[in-house]
């Protein structure tokens, strides 16, 4: 009895420092951010004016907010389809017996983009997308699809797709890597059993591979969807939200409010909304996956 009590006390003692850290560096900023969103203030002026929930009202009337939401959603959907969906298929193909020999080569090639710094990636793609000297239009012209060639980042109708595409190019390989690791943990007996039962490759994929790496798929989709709502740097480097406001995402909108328009309160409001969105989405995903373990 006494022993359990002592054990518990020791356990608590061990947890306290970590708990304090999390309280101080995770929960306190969230609460402070909420508090800050109730004031009109900027970073260089000590004066603050209480405005209550005014910024929340303004945010839901701000057309840029809805452009940003739409763009973030586009990011999330594209990331789910390409990074998780296509990533899963690519990983399964690479794990196939026929290709496994070349796996290290393909794995490296696919993974390479995700280790390059985003600033570099952004600048390189800016050049590739350049309407005059860029490779993208060059290739389109070479294969006789000249009417497809356009000013990719300068056209407000297509710019956001061009930016989203770069993210898929960069991170699909990363997801492939995660899925490969998970797949290699699946015991070979399952595949042998499936083969003896006469299951086709596609059937094996859906009935053996996918259920076995369910946890990793969940983790992958949580990471990509949350990442899609926090995206900032790719957009900032390539278009900074332009042309006009067509590629604005919540991250760039927040940055613009805070450091260009001197509206820290409005930026805090956007921050709070981003927090609410990502929290809700991850709760939903965990619920759908019925667990959040092995994360």
């Amino acid at each position: 009895m006494i022993k359990t009590f002592q054990n518990r006390r020791t356990a608590v003692l061990y947890i306290v420092p970590a708990l304090l850290f999390i309280l101080l560096f995770v929960f306190l900023p969230i609460i402070l951010n909420l508090y800050n969103s109730l004031f009109r203030w900027n970073s260089f002026d000590a004066e603050r004016t209480f405005v209550g929930l005014e910024y929340y009202g303004r945010l839901f009337k701000d057309p840029v907010f809805f452009t940003a939401l739409k763009n973030n959603s586009l990011y999330a959907i594209a990331s789910l389809v390409f990074q998780v969906g296509a990533g899963l298929i690519i990983a399964a193909i690479l794990e196939d017996k026929l290709i496994r020999k070349f796996q290290p080569f393909f794995r490296t090639v696919f993974f390479l983009p995700s280790v390059i710094s985003i600033a570099v990636v952004g600048l390189v793609w800016q050049l590739l997308y350049n309407p005059e000297v860029g490779l993208v239009n060059g290739v389109l012209k070479a294969i006789g699809q000249e009417e497809w060639a356009r000013s990719w980042l300068g056209d407000s109708d297509v710019a956001i797709y061009a930016v989203v595409a770069v993210s898929q190019w960069q991170y699909t390989g990363y997801m492939v890597m995660l899925f490969l690791i998970a797949m290699q943990k699946i015991p070979n007996e399952y595949y042998e059993a499936a083969m003896i039962d006469g299951a086709s490759k596609i059937k094996t994929f859906f009935h053996v591979t996918v259920p076995q790496i369910k946890e990793m798929i969940l983790v992958g989709s949580v990471i990509t969807v949350i990442g899609a709502f926090k995206v900032f740097d790719e957009v900032y480097v390539m278009t900074s939200g332009g042309p006009g406001r067509s590629t604005e995402v919540l991250g760039t909108m927040l940055y613009r409010s805070a450091f260009r328009n001197d509206e820290m309160g409005y930026a805090s409001t956007i921050g709070t909304i981003v927090f609410v969105i990502t929290l809700t989405l991850s709760l939903i995903q965990m619920k759908l996956g019925k667990s959040g373990q092995e994360v």
Binding site: G154, D155, S156, G241, G242, P243, G244, R245, R256, R260, N261, D262, E263
Partner: peptide
């Protein structure tokens, strides 16, 4: 003011490509 400047800056590209 920075916010007026922001309206000008973000709209001038749209003005040039004719969408505004």
């Amino acid at each position: 003011n920075a916010k007026v400047a922001d309206v000008y800056l973000s709209n001038i590209q749209l003005l040039l490509d004719g969408s505004k």
